[in-house]
Each structure stands twice: as structure tokens, then as C-alpha cells.
Design a binder for these strands. Structure first.
Length: 814
RNA sequence: GGGCGAGUGGUGGAAUGGUAGACACGUUGGACUCAAAAUCCAAUGCUGGCAACAGCGUGAGAGUUCAAGUCUCUCCUCGCCCACCA
């Protein structure tokens, strides 16, 4: 009796077996391999098909690598703190913890239903006290070593929600929940000193630690991701130049990368936040107007500051002048908000002839435009010339090229003590305070007598109180929990207050990959032994939305921990790849509001988990963006039906195949699948298996060995059906204990090859020849071909190129 | 404005410089069936032709080569990320 392929029953059956049997343990001789997915935020919406793409790819890779004998670590956990659960709680009154646990349960069910094989013994949840105890320990570790500090900073503030927002919550300058404009507020905030690790550093014992920049050179990451990190760090070399303020002891220091243009400097601009604005107030003739301008600027939102990109505003400080260090001329000083207080020195020199922004500003305020660099275009009156060139009107530097001029001018400045070489970075320290409930509490206590007191390690974790009203009022929800907020000072025992902010969730995800090595350790975040066994992560896969922040923060944690002797590696992720985004059928991003979201549960119910897995891998190159098309899933389902039917036909007794060409194809397929899986080329691996199965179907006889080999090749991709058919052949052990097949190069070689004859680059004939035929033999056959003769008749053959077993190229002329 | 990437049939896509369009979806025709589904077979880049075959064809144009989707240059279009960073 023929059995029908029924994914529902066989998939459930094997998932249960795998859960019981755990990850396969067999002769492991190739060493460890840590394969990691970026752990998901357990959203109430359930698993997204993009998650399935990501996790299926690592599942296939991990299963494949286990076949090859690696000791694979493949854990899964939950990035469980975060805003959606808290916002849901504000709306519904349901506690974030309950909602999160419910979401996790659902995610886990869905993951199991697509046959993802994780080491669930290592499951972690960042919102559990067992985990965030160590997140808090990380904070204390950084604090103790001077890498965490508190200072006043500008934060995003939404008036409608009465709360501080994370950067990710500010969309186009507006609150993502209320849609209200986000303004800037000054608050005391905690920072991590990520900027300390931009350049290489050393441990006390002399061990070198690569910097956030230099470390990128030795890891296998997509070039675009490395570029984005470099850009985010934004290293730029330049000069700091001193401009003295006339009739005072004060000076303005400006930062420039274009020292060569300094003879074209006709004014100076300082940021509204610049301290000199206050210092010089008494000298200003228009102090009231300046004050007013700054007040207006302060109210400006990020949105306004960026939208008014081209429009530049500012005000001249009347009565204040600076001295040009090279010419001695007196120049006016402006305050303008196009200069950022947070970058460089918060002051710039205005060179309108050679800078876009300065040009616009100078035009508006009718400032002098002096050309000092000669470019290709003669007239710069309409447009600034911003590239390098030859200096003009620059006294003794005239005639030099920009590059040389920068060096010589710097030497002069240093000699005159009017400037120095400086390197500036765009990267700023990481603000980790969040005025939110659903996060890890910052383990700090404030005492009137002792000041800032870190919570002693023995008192960790500082637990999140359960009875908190999380409705936004403008202060951290934790302030309102009396039991949490009021505490005794660990130093003097007097009344003290707990820090009421929680940590950015990115802190939790900056070290989770280490916890997986030793998830139940209660003495340390992970034992040195466990870390030495599994870390660093060998292969990391996740979305490209984490290109900058998460990956940069994780690298920072690794470097900081290494510096103080907790780790022996300075880069956490050796190899990184991003899955391409899956768009909806309409080519747009999937979103609830558009109603175009594909639900994996429905796909599993309709086509089966193996079909869903195969389809997602067959859609296109793993790293490319691709649009979903439910209509196409039927293709991979048909393929699996075919594999199933072949199983009913496979010869159970006959070990050897009689079909030489099928055997040759089998070996080519082994090679192709093995190589493609290694490179994540799942789409072509699947198509080569389709070709093999198509051929097997045409064949009169399918030997047991041929069929079994093809099942093993299929098993990482479509594990349930492979396991089922394997057992139907009478095998007692799981297919995952089988040997991964090796290809035989001799068998790959075919008996005959197709020779293509090109005449002047065009194909004129094709014929079969015995593989390995000589040029003379091929030429003889080619010239005997009627179609070839039609083209060569009466013409001289000038050149012959023969590519063995492939092409005979004839060049003919009159 | 900067960085990264991509343009190939009706669709998703394949192609170490060597027959462009593998594999799959879709479409058309046929077999099986009372019928349908499923399955199988055949065709399917465009143009002409009964056919053999010929011409054209990988965003546009040039170049290198016996041979270019692939390498080089110029340009166009689209996507993603970043963006007043001096």
C-alpha cells in the first residue's frame, strides 16, 4: 500500500524525537563551532518570516556542520526587555512580564514547529533576574574601572507621553507612539565610555587589544557593515587652530580638516552651547538679541534642525572680534546652530569659498568670500569649490598643493603655538539611562553623605519591583515604588535612594553571547573554562538593522572585558552575515497596518514545515532582499512529494547502482550541495537536489545507496521528511548519525562532453565527443560538420583556440 | 551630499571570461479521468520560418578579448543605510 506524504503527522513525530534525543552527539573530531542567531525580541505578533529565514539558515548550517564532525553550540534566548511590552502594559494594564512570557512561549512553539533544533538547556531570558543580575554586574564592572559615568545630557522628550524616548523611538523627529514633536531636555544620565576603545589599547600585562576601528580589519564581516561602523565612529584628522579674541585673554579654538583653506577664512562661528557665549556676554553690544537667538535655538527640535538643512540662521556677536592667526586680520564672530556643540571644539572657521555650508551662510549675511584654492572651474562665485587644489593668495604657501600646505601650515602653527594636530571622532559615549520600567535597574544608590554608591555585588540582582504603576508621568516609574526607591546606604546605613532609571536594552544584548557558554553559572557571568571552550562566536547571523549599534556595543563590551582580564579575545564575532529582508508579496515591507504580513503558522499548516524551510531558502540568494510569493511554495512542496514517491520505489536490497550517468550526477550533486551549504548558497543547493531527483525519477532503477545518499544531502534542509524516509528504509538510528557523503572526482567526470564550435565568436555547431579528446580529434570532427563548413568554405582559418572538453573557437577571414 | 549594493524572460532567479536564461512559479497544449484535483508528457526570451536555421537579446554607450551578464571606462535608473561631523 502506498503511503501518502503527510507533513503534519511526520513533522510532529520527529520534532518529539529530536526534543528527546537532544542535539546529536557523535564522534566529534573537528573542534568546536559556535553558531549564533541574533536572539529575537519576543514580540506579541509571533515569529516573522524573516526570523524563519534567519533561523532556518543557521539550522541548516548547524546540522550540516554536525554531520562533518563539529561540536556545534547553537543556543537560543530572548532579548526580552523593551518598549513594546511596556507600551502594551500602559494600554491594557497587563504586566510586561506576563505578556513577555506568553510571547516567548509562542515563539518557542513556532520555532519547534519549523524544526529548528536548539540547545534549549541553554535558553536565556534577559528579563529574568538570573540574567539581569549579570547585566548589573557588567554595569558595576564598567563603573569600577571608570568606564561608566554620569553627566548632564540632552535627551529626547515627548510632551504628550511625559517621558524620555530612546533614539529608536524618535521617527523623523516625532514620537513613534503619540506622533508629537520630540524636544530636547537636559537630564542627568549614565554613559558608557565606548570612546576609550576606538583606538587599540593594552592590558596591564601588555596584551594588545585591537580598537573598534582596527579590529574590523581582521574579522570576516560584510564590507558594507564594516564601512557603516567606520562611518559611525567617524575618525577624522585635522588641526585645532587658535584665534585670539581682541582686547581679552580669551581664545577660540576651531577644528578643521581643511587647514589649507585658512587664508580664505573671513569669520568664525561658534555653537550656541559654546561656553564663550556666556563669557563674552559683557562685551557684546547686542547681548539681548544673542540671548534671544540662543533661546529660540534651544527650543528647536531635531526635526527643525535637520529640515532647515539648507537654511542657515545665526547672529553676529557685535563688539567681539578675533585675530586671524596667519594674517593678523580682525574677523567677526557669529553664533549659529549649524555648528554642533558636541563635535570638535564646537567652533569652526568660516571659509565660504571652499565649504558648502559656509558659502550659504556667507551669502545670507553678506560676508566676504575669498578664494584661496584654485580648482578646475575658474569662477567660484556661484558655487564653492570644495576639493583640493593649488593654493592662491596664501602668502608663502601660495603655489603649494592642498596636501602639502596642510602639513606646512601645521608645522608653522605648532612653532607659533597657535595650533596642533587633532583627531576627532563622530562617535560619542553611549547614553544608557532609560526612564522606563521594563529594563534592568541600574545598580546605584544615592546617599546624601556618601554620594554615588554602587550596589555591592552580593546584593545583586537589584530586582525590578512587581507592583509598579507604569503609566507615564514624566518621572521614572520606579520612583513611585517606595519599596524600591527608599533604601539604606550600603556604606553608612543611612537613608538613601536607589537610581530609578533602567538600562538601555542594548546593554543586555551586548554580552548575551557569552552567557550562552555557561548559562546557569551563579558565581560569574560565565566561567573562564566555558568561555575558553566556546567563545568567540564563529558564525553570527542576523538582520542588517543591527549593523551599527548592537554590533558596536557588543564589540565594546568584549574589548573592555578583555582589558581587565575576563576574556582572551578582542572581537566577539569572527564571521558575520545578514539575511536579506523578506518583503511582502506587494514588494512593500510587511506590516500589520498594511495587512500584508505572512504568518509562518499558516504556511506550516498549509504546506508543512519542510516546505516552508525549503521555500524560504529557495527564494533567492540568502543575503538579498526578496519578495514573498505564496504561489511559489507549491514548487518545493511538489519536489518533496517527488522525493517521497521515489522512496516508495527505491530498491531496498540492491546496494550498487547500475546507472553510471546517474551515479555521476549523484557525485556532482554531493559536491555542489556540500560546497553550497558552506557558502550559504541554499537556493542553488536545492536546485541541484531537484535536478538529481528529476533524474532519479526518470531512471528505471534506484539503488538503495543512491537514494540514501540523496536523503542525507537533503536532511539539513528538509529534516523531517528525510528522517521519515530514512526510517522507512528500515534504519534504526536517526539520519543525523549517518555519514555525510564524499564525492569521487573520478565519478564526476563524464564519459562524453559537449563541444561547442564558435566561428568568429558565434556558436555554429555543437556535438558530443569522448571526454579528454585532443584538439586534433575535435578539429577533425568540427571541420566535417556541415554547418561549420558552410561558414568556413573558401575562407582561411587564422586562429584556433581549443578549451578542453568545452570549446573550439575558430577565427576566419577572407 | 556621503557610504554600500543592484539592474538578466510574464515572475523568483542560475551562470570558475567559454552554448545566457539552470532550477522553480506561471502560461499553453496533450495524456489519464464520467468529471475535477493530483500526477505525467511536450512547448515556453523576442522576431522570421513548416523546418533546418538565421537575426536580435543580460539598464545605455564605448573599450579589452578568439570569446563579455561576468573585466575596464562613461552615463542612466532603482534600493538600502547615514547625513549641517567643519
Amino acid at each position: 500500500m502506498k503511503k501518502l506524504y503527510n507533513p503534519k503527522t511526520i513533522e510532529k513525530k520527529w520534532q518529539k524525537v529530536w526534543m528527546k534525543q537532544g542535539v546529536s552527539k557523535k564522534a566529534l573530531n573537528k573542534g568546536k563551532l559556535y553558531i549564533l542567531d541574533m536572539f529575537p525580541y519576543p514580540s506579541g505578533d509571533g515569529l516573522h518570516v524573516g526570523h524563519v529565514e534567519n533561523f532556518t539558515a543557521t539550522d541548516i548550517y548547524a546540522r550540516f556542520k554536525r554531520f562533518l564532525g563539529y561540536d556545534v553550540l547553537r543556543p537560543m534566548g530572548w532579548d526580552a526587555f523593551g518598549l513594546p511590552a511596556e507600551n502594551f502594559a500602559i494600554k491594557t494594564g497587563i504586566h510586561p512580564k506576563l505578556k513577555t512570557l506568553e510571547s516567548i512561549k509562542n515563539f518557542k512553539r513556532q520555532m519547534k514547529s519549523v524544526g529548528l533544533l536548539y540547545d534549549w538547556d541553554r535558553e536565556i531570558n534577559t528579563s529574568s533576574p538570573e540574567y539581569y543580575k549579570w547585566t548589573q554586574w557588567m554595569f558595576l564592572f564598567l563603573y569600577t574601572n571608570g568606564l561608566a559615568y554620569k553627566k548632564k545630557a540632552k535627551v529626547n522628550w515627548c510632551e504628550a507621553c511625559h517621558t524620555v524616548l530612546a533614539n529608536e523611538q524618535v521617527i523623523d523627529g516625532k514620537c513613534d507612539r503619540s506622533g508629537d514633536i520630540v524636544i530636547q531636555k537636559d537630564l542627568e544620565q549614565w554613559f558608557f565610555k565606548i570612546t576609550d576603545f576606538v583606538e587599540p589599547t593594552k592590558r596591564e600585562d601588555g596584551t594588545k587589544i585591537s580598537g573598534l576601528l582596527s579590529g574590523l580589519e581582521k574579522i570576516d564581516w560584510p564590507e558594507s557593515t564594516k564601512a557603516a561602523q567606520r562611518h559611525w565612529i567617524g575618525r577624522s584628522e585635522g588641526a585645532e587652530v587658535v584665534f585670539y579674541i581682541t582686547d581679552t585673554e580669551e581664545e577660540v579654538r576651531v577644528f578643521t580638516t581643511r587647514l589649507d583653506t585658512i587664508y580664505g577664512c573671513t569669520y568664525i562661528v561658534i555653537a550656541p552651547e559654546h561656553p564663550l557665549v556666556r563669557t563674552l556676554e559683557s562685551r557684546m553690544k547686542n547681548a539681548q538679541a544673542v540671548k534671544k537667538y540662543i533661546a529660540v535655538t534651544k527650543k528647536k527640535t531635531d526635526l527643525e534642525r535637520t529640515e532647515l538643512n539648507k537654511e542657515k540662521t545665526g547672529i553676529c556677536l557685535q563688539g567681539v572680534e578675533v585675530v586671524h592667526p596667519f594674517t593678523g586680520e580682525r574677523l567677526p564672530v557669529y553664533v549659529a546652530d549649524y555648528v554642533l556643540g558636541t563635535y570638535g571644539t564646537g567652533a569652526v572657521m568660516g571659509v565660504p569659498a571652499h565649504d558648502e555650508r559656509d558659502f550659504i551662510f556667507a551669502k545670507k549675511y553678506q560676508l566676504e568670500i575669498l578664494e584661496v584654492i584654485q580648482g578646475k572651474e575658474a569662477n567660484h562665485k556661484e558655487k564653492p569649490y570644495t576639493e583640493d587644489g593649488t593654493l592662491i593668495a596664501s602668502k608663502e604657501f601660495t603655489g603649494l598643493h592642498s596636501e602639502e600646505a596642510r602639513e606646512k601650515m601645521l608645522v608653522w602653527l605648532q612653532k607659533e603655538k597657535l595650533g596642533r594636530k587633532v583627531v576627532n571622532y563622530r562617535l560619542r559615549d553611549w547614553l544608557i539611562s532609560r526612564q522606563r520600567y521594563w529594563g534592568a535597574p541600574i545598580p546605584i544608590i544615592y546617599c546624601d553623605d556618601c554620594g554615588v554608591v554602587p550596589v555591592p555585588e552580593k546584593d545583586l540582582p537589584v530586582k525590578l519591583p512587581a507592583d509598579v504603576d507604569f503609566r507615564p508621568t514624566g518621572e521614572s516609574p520606579l520612583v513611585r515604588s517606595k519599596s524600591f526607591h527608599n533604601v539604606k546606604c550600603p556604606k553608612c546605613g543611612k537613608k538613601a535612594r536607589r537610581e530609578s532609571d533602567t538600562m538601555d536594552t542594548f546593554v543586555c544584548s551586548s554580552w548575551y553571547y557569552m552567557r550562552f557558554a555557561d548559562p546557569h553559572n551563579i558565581k560569574t557571568f560565565a566561567s573562564k573554562k566555558a568561555l575558553a571552550t566556546y567563545l568567540p562566536v564563529d558564525f553570527y547571523i542576523g538582520g542588517s538593522e543591527h549593523t551599527v549599534l548592537h554590533l558596536l556595543y557588543a564589540r565594546f563590551f568584549t574589548k573592555a572585558l578583555m582589558k581587565y582580564g575576563y576574556l582572551e579575545f578582542d572581537e566577539p564575532f569572527q564571521k558575520l552575515r545578514h539575511q536579506g529582508m523578506i518583503l511582502a508579496q506587494d514588494g512593500q515591507k510587511m506590516s500589520k497596518s498594511k495587512g500584508n504580513v505572512v504568518n509562518p503558522d499558516q504556511m506550516v499548516a498549509e504546506f508543512g514545515a519542510d516546505s516552508l524551510r525549503l521555500y524560504e531558502m529557495f527564494m533567492g540568494p540568502f543575503e538579498d532582499m526578496k519578495a514573498w510569493n505564496t504561489g511559489s511554495i507549491i514548487g518545493v512542496r511538489r519536489f518533496l512529494e517527488k522525493v517521497w514517491r521515489l522512496g516508495q520505489r527505491a530498491d531496498n536490497k540492491q546496494q550498487k547502482t547500475k546507472n553510471v550517468s546517474l551515479e555521476s550526477l549523484l557525485h556532482r550533486t554531493i559536491k555542489k550541495v556540500t560546497e553550497d551549504l558552506e557558502e550559504l548558497k541554499f537556493n542553488t543547493a536545492i536546485s541541484s537536489l531537484m535536478i538529481l531527483m528529476n533524474e532519479m525519477e526518470k531512471s528505471d532503477h534506484i539503488s538503495r545507496i543512491t537514494y540514501q545518499t540523496s536523503l542525507v544531502l537533503l536532511s539539513p534542509l528538509a529534516p523531517h521528511i528525510a528522517e521519515e524516509l530514512w526510517s522507512q528504509l528500515g534504519e534504526k538510528k536517526s539520519i543525523f548519525f549517518a555519514q555525510w557523503p564524499k564525492w569521487d572526482t573520478k565519478k564526476i567526470a563524464e564519459e562524453s562532453s559537449i563541444i561547442v564550435v564558435q566561428i568568429n565568436g558565434k556558436v555554429r555547431a555543437t556535438f558530443q565527443m569522448a571526454t579528454g579528446s585532443s584538439e586534433a580529434e575535435v578539429k577533425k570532427v568540427a571541420l566535417a560538420d556541415a554547418n561549420v563548413q558552410a561558414y568556413t568554405e573558401g575562407k582561411a582559418i587564422r586562429k584556433i583556440i581549443y578549451i578542453k572538453d568545452k570549446i573550439l573557437s575558430l577565427v576566419i577571414g577572407d
